[in-house]
Amino acid sequence: MMRRFLLALFLIASAAPAFAVNPDEMLKDPALESRARAISAELRCMVCQNQSIDDSNAELAKDLRLLVRKRITDGDSDKQVMSYIVSRYGEFVLLKPRFEVGTIALWLSPVLLFAAGISLLATLFFRRDAPRAVNPLSPEERKRLNQLLDGPDC
């Protein structure tokens, strides 16, 4: 029973996300390290592209983590560190793009597409087949119809 428990505990622990930050990269001051972790969690690894630099094992991610920590220990604020990294690597380095004029379409497109989808669904769901306008029969057509309906008596 104990073996199963330890095996389950090991499997759960191994499924947890592994951070790529090496112990030799960490700052001694816990407050500064916390700031560095928060900043690096918002920066994209330019090699992996779907991971933050905090999660990536790539050399470039390591260099960026070290750069973030150096800027923090040099006295830069979080905003200054982010601005410095963005100025060197561009907006793509941000995992969450800024809300600016250049990115407004990126931020608003999901909302607009969702609204368009809802309106399309509502239109299709609540659509009523409106009676179509029918031209009234002319006197000749009405007479012919009556003749056809009366038909020959069998």
Rank of each mutant, 00 (worst) to 15 (best):
S77A: 04
D150C: 07
N135H: 09
V21W: 05
F10V: 04
L67I: 00
S77D: 04
E100A: 05
A38K: 09
T103H: 15
M26W: 05
L108H: 14
I85G: 05
A20P: 01
T103I: 03
A31E: 07
I12F: 05
E42I: 02
N135Q: 05
I39M: 14
A8K: 13
E59I: 14
R4D: 08
L94D: 00
L9W: 08
N57D: 04
R132F: 08
R37K: 11
V21F: 02
V68R: 03
F99W: 15
A133T: 15
L148T: 15
R98Y: 14
L108P: 12
L43G: 00
L66K: 12
R71S: 06
S119L: 11
R65A: 00
L64P: 00
C154G: 00
R127S: 05
R142N: 04
P30L: 09
D29E: 01
M46T: 08
I53Y: 07
S34T: 08
V93K: 09
R65H: 03
A20Q: 04
I72S: 01
V86G: 02
L6E: 00
A18T: 07
R37C: 02
E141T: 01
I72R: 14
I118Q: 04
L6V: 04
G75M: 09
K70L: 08
E33D: 13
D153G: 03
E59G: 09
D153L: 10
L137H: 06
F126D: 03
V81K: 00
S119N: 12
M26E: 15
A122F: 01
D55T: 07
Q51C: 05
A31D: 07
R71V: 01
Q51G: 13
F114S: 11
L7E: 13
K79W: 10
M2S: 13
E33I: 09
S56Y: 02
S83H: 00
S87K: 10
L112V: 13
P17F: 01
K70I: 01
S83N: 15
R4V: 07
E100T: 03
D54N: 10
V93T: 15
R88H: 11
E25Q: 13
M2E: 15
A122L: 04
A116L: 01
D55Y: 06
A133M: 15
A18S: 10
R37T: 07
Q51S: 11
P110H: 07
L43K: 04
A105E: 12
A133F: 15
F92S: 06
D55A: 03
A31M: 09
K79D: 10
E25K: 11
I104S: 11
L66E: 01
F10I: 13
L108M: 06
V86I: 06
I72M: 03
L137F: 12
I12D: 12
F126M: 02
L6Q: 13
R69T: 04
